[in-house]
């Protein structure tokens, strides 16, 4: 177990937050709902951590907690990308 403060990780967190501010500020209010479903899908990356816990040889409790976490994250990843695309498909410049 690491005891020191994770300085590189804090840099990453901080820089990503500033980048996020710049990126999100450019998203028009028109797309704020798909933005929420998109960031939700992307934050489903917690799936990668959950996969390891569900599949590693730690103990049964961890495997089962990992299984529930994999299920929840998969819902977010699969569902998030699908609904974002479903919403974005509806935005048309001219009427069909």
């Amino acid at each position: 177990m690491e005891h020191a403060i994770p300085i590189p990780e804090l840099y990453i967190f901080l820089l990503a937050a500033f980048l996020g501010y710049q990126l999100i500020s450019r998203v028009p209010p028109l797309l704020h709902t798909p933005l929420m479903s998109a960031t939700n899908a992307i934050s489903g990356i917690s799936l990668v951590g959950s996969l390891i816990v569900a599949g590693a040889n730690y103990n049964h409790v961890s495997n089962i907690l990992g299984f529930v976490a994999v299920t929840c994250s998969t819902i977010n990843v699969v569902g998030g990308f699908l609904i974002t695309d479903r919403i974005l498909k509806m935005f048309k410049k001219v009427k069909k």
Binding site: I12, L14, A17, G20, Y21, T39, I42, S43, I45
Partner: peptide, 10 residues
């Protein structure tokens, strides 16, 4: 950390 930070700032 990157995605959590992006999601959080959003």
């Amino acid at each position: 950390i990157v995605t959590g930070s992006l999601d959080g700032s959003s």
